[in-house]
Amino acid sequence: MPGIQLTVSGDGDTGRSEHFAAQLSALTCSVLDKKLANTMVMVRYVPHAHWFIGGQSLAALGQNSFRLEVTLTEETNTKDQKASYHRQAFELLSSLIGNVHPHSNVHIVDCAATSYGYGGLTQEYRYQHGKTQHARIGSESAR
C-alpha cells in the first residue's frame, strides 16, 4: 500500500499530474512489487521562486527539482529493491521534468505495520487476518 507524494517545481496542470501519477504508479508496482489498486499518488507544485537549494531559488539557478516520498510498510521490500527504485525513479523523473538539480531526491519512508494502514485498518491487522484466513483455508482443505 504505497503512498506516493511527488513535489515538483513549476506550474502544474491536470494532464501533467496524471502523467506523473501513471508513470510513478507503474514503476512503484513493478520495482517494489505493490498492487496498483492500493497505490495512492498526490502531486504538488511549488513555484521556482519558492524552492531553494543551497540558499538560492530554482528561479535564480535556472533549474527544476523534485522530491519524491514513498511510504511503505517496513520489512516488505529489500535493500536491493529500494536501491533499484531510487535509481529508476530518479532517472524517470529527471527525464520527465528535465534540467533537474542534482539535489532532487527520492525518499522511501518505512513505517511500522502497527502505525500504517488505510480504510481504518493497520497493515499489521491485515497481515494477522491474512495469516488466520490462510490457516483456516489450509485446515479446511486438509479435512
Results as ranks from 00 to 15, higher is better:
S95M: 05
F66E: 01
Y127H: 13
N38P: 02
I97H: 05
M1W: 00
T114G: 10
V8T: 08
H103M: 12
L61G: 01
T78Q: 02
S57W: 08
R87Q: 10
E75N: 15
Y85L: 00
A26R: 07
S94G: 12
V46Q: 10
G120N: 05
N77H: 02
A83F: 02
T114Y: 13
S141F: 12
A22N: 13
L92D: 07
S17P: 04
A135Q: 05
P2H: 08
Q56H: 13
Y125C: 06
Q81A: 00
Q5N: 14
H107L: 15
Q56I: 01
G10L: 01
R67A: 11
V106E: 11
A112M: 11
R44S: 09
Q23S: 14
E75I: 10
S94P: 03
L6G: 07
H19R: 15
Q5L: 14
V109P: 04
T7H: 12
Y85T: 03
G119H: 04
P47C: 10
A26I: 01
L36Q: 11
H103W: 09
E74Q: 14
G130V: 03
H50S: 09
L58K: 04
L32I: 00
T78G: 00
Q88L: 10
M42N: 14
Q23I: 04
L121D: 03
Q81I: 01
S25A: 07
L72C: 04
G119C: 03
Q56N: 12
R143N: 10
S84I: 02
Y125A: 10
V31M: 01
L58A: 01
A59R: 14
R126D: 02
S141K: 15
L6C: 03
Q56W: 09
L68C: 12
T132F: 09
D33Y: 02
H19M: 11
L6Y: 08
N77K: 03
D13M: 14
L24S: 09
V31H: 00
G130Y: 10
E18H: 14
E69Y: 12
R67L: 13
K82A: 06
Q123P: 06
A60M: 13
N105K: 12
V43M: 06
E18A: 14
R44D: 04
Q56R: 15
N77A: 05
I53E: 06
D11H: 15
E69M: 15
Q23V: 07
Q81C: 00
V8S: 04
S25V: 01
E124W: 13
